[in-house]
């Protein structure tokens, strides 16, 4: 039944990450950590998967000698997320008029 849903987005943490990135121009690793309420290791792992699929951009830099990771949504990721949401709507029999 759920075969058409993007398996990469069909996981709680990855879906949460993509949802956050849709509302911000860019997010920092620590903010994502706070919002997703997951562990540092798991977040890194999920970010790596999304990055490998080219759904997100990851920029690693330094601020006051501390490492800073900035994450943003790619165009491919945005399209994938929109497609995912459209598919969910179809499963739930939602349309523009009753959402």
């Amino acid at each position: 039944m759920f075969n058409e849903l993007d398996p990469l987005l069909n996981s709680p943490v990855r879906l949460a990450i993509m949802s956050i990135l849709l509302t911000v121009k860019h997010a920092h690793f620590n903010d994502l950590l706070k919002e997703t309420q997951t562990t540092q290791g798991n977040l890194s792992h999920q970010l790596k998967k999304l990055h490998e699929a080219q759904y997100i951009y990851i920029e690693k830099t330094y601020k006051n000698n501390y490492p800073l990771t900035i994450i943003s949504l790619s165009e491919k990721g945005k399209i994938a997320f929109e497609t995912y949401v459209e598919n969910i709507k179809k499963y739930l029999h939602l349309n523009e008029n009753n959402t």
Binding site: F2, L5, P7, N10, S11, P12, L15, A16, S19, I20, L22, T23, V24, E35, Y84, V85, N87, I88, Y91, L92
Partner: peptide, 27 residues
Amino acid sequence: MPKTLLNPNESLAIIQKVVLSTRQDYH
């Protein structure tokens, strides 16, 4: 279904929750 996979209702709930909380948190 493994626990790591979501059904559409759970997906929608996560998207709604995250989007709402993110909007409230950025000042």
